[in-house]
Amino acid sequence: MVSKDLPDDGHAVVAKGKSPSGKKAAPRDDEIHGPSPNAATNLAIADIALRGGAALVRHTIERAVLGKKYGPRKAAKVIKGRSLKESLLHGALARVALRSVPGAIVVGGVLVAKTLYDRSKAREARRKGEATLNEMGGKGES
C-alpha cells in the first residue's frame, strides 16, 4: 500500500530544496554543478582555471622578486629567458615538495643549505648570479 504523501518513487513530496525534516536537502547524486552538464568537462574547466591562475600568480611573484633589484623590464626578460630544463626542474621540485611531508623537508632542506652556502660565498655567488641573469636576459630579448 502506497501512502498519499509519497509519489511512485517512494520519496516524500516537500518544498523544493527542503528535506522532510525541514533542513536543506543534500544534492542528488545525478545533479551536476558547473557550466556543463558533463562532469569531465567541468573538471577540465576547473583544472585549466586553477593552473592558469597559479601560473599568473607565479609569474607575478617572480617578477616582484626580481623586480626589486633589476626593474620590471629586465625581470620580465630574465623570466622569459629561462631554459626549458630550468623550468622543468623547478616544477619537479615543487611537485615533490607539495606531495609529501618528507619531500617538503628534503626540498626545503636543500634550499636552506643552498641559501646558506650562497651567503657564505656571497661575493662570488653575486658575480655568478649577475652573469647568469644577464645571459638569461639576453636570451629573453629575441
Rank of each mutant, 00 (worst) to 15 (best):
K24C: 03
P27D: 08
R28N: 07
D30K: 02
D30T: 08
G34N: 05
P37T: 09
P37K: 15
N38S: 05
A40E: 15
A40R: 13
T41Q: 10
L43M: 11
L43K: 14
I45W: 04
I45K: 08
A46C: 03
D47Y: 06
A49G: 00
L50N: 13
R51H: 07
R51A: 14
R51Q: 15
G52M: 02
G52L: 04
G53P: 00
G53L: 12
A55H: 06
A55M: 09
A55E: 11
L56T: 03
L56A: 07
R58V: 10
R58C: 04
H59W: 07
I61K: 12
E62P: 04
R63S: 09
A64N: 03
V65I: 14
G67L: 03
G67C: 03
G67N: 02
K69F: 05
V78N: 00
V78D: 00
I79L: 14
I79S: 12
K80G: 00
K80P: 00
L84Q: 13
S87C: 11
S87R: 15
S87Q: 14
L88S: 06
L88R: 15
L88W: 05
H90T: 10
H90G: 04
H90E: 14
A92P: 00
L93I: 03
L93N: 06
A94L: 04
A94Q: 15
V96H: 07
A97I: 01
V101S: 06
V107F: 05
G108W: 02
G109S: 08
G109E: 10
V110Q: 03
L111V: 13
L111S: 10
V112A: 09
A113G: 07
A113D: 01
K114L: 09
T115N: 14
T115Q: 12
Y117H: 12
D118G: 08
R119N: 11
R119K: 11
S120H: 13
S120P: 02
S120I: 08
K121R: 14
A122H: 05
A122R: 09
R123C: 00
R123M: 07
R123K: 15
E124L: 06
A125L: 01
R126E: 09
R127Q: 13
K128L: 09
G129F: 07
E130A: 11
E130H: 06
T132Y: 14
N134D: 13
M136Y: 07
G137L: 01
G138Y: 07
G138P: 01
